[in-house]
Design a protein around this nucleic acid. Structure first.
Lengths: 332, 332
DNA sequence: TTGAAAGCGCTACCAT
DNA sequence: ATGGTAGCGCTTTCAA
């Protein structure tokens, strides 16, 4: 069943059917209705490949990331971003195709993608996979692109990211306003970009409270044993904090377990606030309050941004976004 | 840059270029080389939309599932399957596109997908989303399809699933051979398909050991508190088991925590084996031994099956697959 | 208000 | 061994 068949069945020309299909150009109302009837009756759907060829569009967006085995367990966030993007794109009638940058052909991983790239209207790419080489390729193809996550090098590509400094500042304000004085940022990881940003933000935020010695930052490997013993020491030291901000929920698990063992009650003796709610929080008693960063929303915004770029290719957009929210539960 | 340009630049006809491009039909070796040079020099890539139209193929596979916000945290397994499929398909030069069955248009969710369906060479669908209605649509479109997960209704569609009965049987054999007598399956959930299958398998396996009273099955809500107290009771009852098979890692967490609190050592006093390794296992001391079901592999196999179906549309394949593996760690 | 026809870029058959 | 050309199914311009 092609457009030709419908034209014949409706007793009109192919172009008339096309006009009806696209809601474009003038067609007499009655003709339009008639053609629509026929289309509906035969349950006709235009072949999108032909359509794409004629319009030189694909309505297909490439989503580039490193999709390796078991990564969904280590980093479910990644997929929440993906799903957010999917959600927005399907609303706008785009489809999302996965392009795996973790394939064997390490060097030509991208060249492999190129082959694909041709057929995409735009690309979304995890900034963790980006480098200047890939940037060049994208620019050469002159393809609308949005990187998810701040780009660490000067780039002509658009990107979007959550504002980690802002999130942690929000946490600090929240705790200070609640009357906590001695804060502790627990579980910083040297060299980890997100952790670094958060620590910068933590320091900055403290300045506003003239807090330059009652609060502290603790760097530590994010594993349960090490955080546990670290917390144990901390709570017995003279610089005992009254509020702890954890870099992720695994760390929160260790901290809260330790506080429980020390018979300290939350939030009375000490408050705990954590980033990255899942997946450990259901094991934790009391359930930790959390600074939620809506990565699904980030995905949606990245997709919106891409759609915007597709329509306005010239614009360079580099922006922070996503307002974090503090969800109070048992520990604040 | 089109095939026409390349033809001109190479001083040959379009069809010759096409032949070179497709490695098909005869072209004189020297001509071939020459054309290839030109292609390489200009970095030419054939427009795949045009190609698809001419061959009425898309090299695009639809992956249908319910992609809802935060599901990556609740069910990372789902994405491991997806990635397995992606891995296999990219090797075979197919691309994978996401089709979300959780969109608003609940009834027409599929009709929405239809629009897409036309442009796919095949579809992979999570059986959890399947019903006879959807089956009809797929059959009507006569599209090669593979369902991931056993279909609960009689169907003309192909499916593939892990053999849950077999997995649990493997666990039972393993424990029995190690000399354990009184096994306990912990955390059965009434009405849950997978749990039901496992329990059937558990019972069957026990028959072979004439074990009809020393072992037992405990149904319980899979939350930490409830499993914990349940285990506490169990270990103080007269039907105290010497080996516990847990339905998932959250349950294992609760069980092992309880055993630790009871000062029972593993595996000496009691062995513990669990399904669904991630994501809690890193919190557990000792680390639980696990019956690993490789869902990434399942995804790969589903993809292989689909590729097979694309080439042999007539065949109906309905099969169990995936050999579970027991990974010994601290608790057996 | 409608229709004819020229593309879109490629494949594959048929001639030569 | 190569090339001409009729499609693939649709869009869009232009003429009527």
């Amino acid at each position: 069943m092609t457009i030709k068949d419908i034209a014949q069945l409706a007793g009109v020309s192919i172009s008339t059917v096309s006009k009806v299909l696209n809601n474009k150009l003038y067609v007499a109302p009655q003709t339009r209705r008639h053609v629509q009837d026929v289309i509906k009756r035969y349950n006709y759907q235009a072949n999108s490949t032909a359509r794409n060829l004629a319009q030189s569009k694909t309505h297909d967006i490439a989503y580039l990331d490193k999709f390796i085995r078991n990564i969904p367990f280590e980093n479910p966030h990644m997929f929440n971003i993906l799903l957010g993007a999917e959600n927005k794109l399907q609303n706008k009638n785009y489809r999302i195709s996965l392009v795996n940058l973790a394939s064997k052909k390490t060097v030509n991983q991208i060249l492999e993608a190129q082959l694909a790239i041709k057929q995409f209207d735009g690309i979304l790419i995890n900034s963790a996979c980006m480098n200047p080489k890939i940037e060049k390729i994208i620019l050469r193809y002159d393809l609308p692109a949005v990187c998810i996550g701040k780009l660490e090098f000067d780039s002509m590509l658009s990107w979007i990211d959550t504002n980690h400094r802002h999130s942690v500042a929000k946490a600090v304000n929240f705790l200070k306003h609640k009357g906590y004085h001695a804060l502790c940022f627990m579980g910083g990881m040297l060299g980890d970009k997100i952790s670094d940003e958060r620590i910068q933000g933590f320091k900055q935020a403290l300045l506003q409270y003239n807090d330059n010695k009652s609060s502290q930052i603790i760097y530590n490997k994010p594993n349960v044993q090490s955080i546990y013993s670290c917390t144990m020491q901390l709570m017995q030291s003279r610089k005992k904090p009254d509020a702890i901000v954890c870099n992720n929920s695994l760390i929160a698990y260790a901290v809260i377990t330790c506080l429980n063992d020390l018979k300290l009650t939350m939030p009375n003796d000490v408050a705990v606030l954590t980033f990255d709610d899942y997946p450990y929080s259901q094991l934790i008693v009391p359930t930790p309050s959390v600074i939620e960063i809506d990565l699904y929303e980030l995905g949606k915004q990245a997709a919106s941004m891409l759609i915007h770029k597709i329509k306005n290719p010239a614009q360079l957009l580099q922006t922070y976004t996503t307002l974090p929210q503090i969800i109070e539960r048992g520990t604040t």
